[in-house]
Amino acid sequence: MTTALDIQGLRKTYHNGFTALKGIDLQVEQGDFFALLGANGAGKSTTIGIVSSLVNKTAGKVNIFGYDLDTQREQAKAQIGLVPQEFNFNMFEPVVEIVVNQGGYYGIPRQEAFVRAETLLKQLGLWEKAREQARNLSGGMKRRLMIARSLIHQPRLLILDEPTAGVDIEIRRSMWEFLRKLNAEGTTIILTTHYLEEAESLCRNIGIIDKGELIENTGMKQLLNRLDTESYVFDLASPLEHLPATSSNLCHCTLLDPTTLEVAFHKEHYSLNQVFSFLNQQSITVQSMRNKTNRLEQLFLELVEGNKA
């Protein structure tokens, strides 16, 4: 399988002496949906900036679909579409012009760029705003405009830096669907986000950057399997007077209020079926249930905390 992005020993020290990246090695395979996670200032945006030629690197090599960013810059850049974190288009330009002009920078004839722009803007629900100045769009629309702009040259690798920040849940879900479809059609996607639910839902592989170092690079399933404890919150049909006694310290119950029960159990020793059997034995009726916390969030915090030690 072809490697979409191959980063070797990437380092970046800014003029003020701050080292944002301390020698990162990262590979993203073609067709992957890859999550790049990290706290603010961890080095995600610097990595993306270097890959997309907006930040000069201090050392290291970057290959994009086999093209060396140093020696085959034009070919390497042609493979990438970038959706940056901040709105960075000319707010006074009409929406369609922003997308068509971006096509022009990739050498796409104006007429063809118009056709592509129409298709993309329709897919992203922006065609009705095509002739309006970009400053008149809502926050969610501006995010979608940046996605349309990044796709005009049909890139093989799409990099999204927090694409759903500040977007309402309905639009976020529709953007997820759009990105899933794009990935299914063959576009490799790298996503950074602070919504870990988003990363868990969309991505197959994950890299975690902390303080300029890649502290984790694995499959999403493999990572989640490392979580040895699951916590569920059960909404009960009738109030409980006493906390049910558990037979093992591998399963722990907490009564949050008379009708809300939290059960934490070790995945290796217990299954959710056994938890329900136990609740049945206690004549406890469950109306609904949910995960106490996002699993990836829990792991992320553990890994970052572990790196601090």
Binding site: S53, L54, I80, L82, P84, N88, Y105
Partner: peptide
């Protein structure tokens, strides 16, 4: 200032 110079910088335009 608006950041849209990046539109050209990320592209293969020399």
């Amino acid at each position: 200032f608006q950041g849209n110079i990046a539109e050209m910088l990320v592209s293969p335009t020399p």
